[in-house]
Design a protein around this nucleic acid. Structure first.
Lengths: 136, 136
DNA sequence: CGGGATCCACTGGGATACTG
DNA sequence: CAGTATCCCAGTGGATCCCG
């Protein structure tokens, strides 16, 4: 397989619990940043073209192409090629991709709602760490 | 900061849309595999000790320690140190961590339900790719 | 037991440059 | 326009050894 882009952990022979392995497997598939962002974009705007996605996401065309292929392979995204000149390719969510929107949105909403709280916790933590360092 | 573990993309000066940046930021925080798995474990079993988590997840102690610190910093996990001999440290979810369970569970459920469908799509895709290669 | 410090391999991912 | 192919660096993360 091409350079870069290979997912999943193997960790020699991880003796972990079956559930974790399962979930791990799952996250390895659709869990990366770009996949999620692509799905969200398509969900929001419908059919999109390659460069349109590229500009919208601020993703390098390498990662876009790689990730789109994976998503197509996983059956979340459909790719339609129009052999015109210049060529035109449109990407869209499949049924499966659509069904993925909900959980993703839930996670996104939580994140948006709690980002500030996380930031607070961080500064608090960092401040305390700073204190601890001074009294050394 | 210590070796390894730094999240987030910068992509030079990504001209992407604000939403995407925001979501990206969010995913950078609590979006990695280990964070999710740790939260799930704690959610399921309650307070857990270091090596207990380690064994349960099949995670290297380096990543466990790193990830736990991040989670504590982000205010999702609490750390209680018992200065006994031998020492005993317990990790648990905070309120914020608890609230994170729901969206995570939603995602997990979707994944579990659709894993087989993804697998199907994959073999289909791979088979077709194989075909295409033969007629070359 | 609960980590910190090192070392090292692999991979994610950006920057070109080239093709159809 | 829609990619593919290279190159290459930085970050991720496992393995080890060590210490209180």
């Amino acid at each position: 397989m091409s350079p870069g882009h290979k997912k999943g952990t193997d960790m020699a022979n991880a003796p972990q619990c079956a559930d974790c392995k399962r979930i791990n497997e799952v996250l390895s598939r659709v869990g990366d940043r770009w996949s999620v962002l692509i799905v969200i974009s398509l969900a929001q705007y419908g059919k999109m073209r390659f460069n349109q996605l590229k500009r919208h996401l601020g993703i390098s065309q390498r990662m876009l192409s790689l990730t789109l292929r994976e998503l197509e392979r996983d059956g979340l995204v459909s790719r339609t090629y129009h052999p015109t000149i210049p060529p035109k390719v449109e990407y869209d969510l499949t049924e499966l991709g659509q069904s993925f929107r909900e959980p993703v949105r839930a996670l996104g909403m939580w994140a948006l709602e709690n980002l500030s709280r996380i930031d607070e916790a961080r500064s608090r933590y960092d401040a305390e760490a700073e204190q601890a360092k001074k009294s050394a």
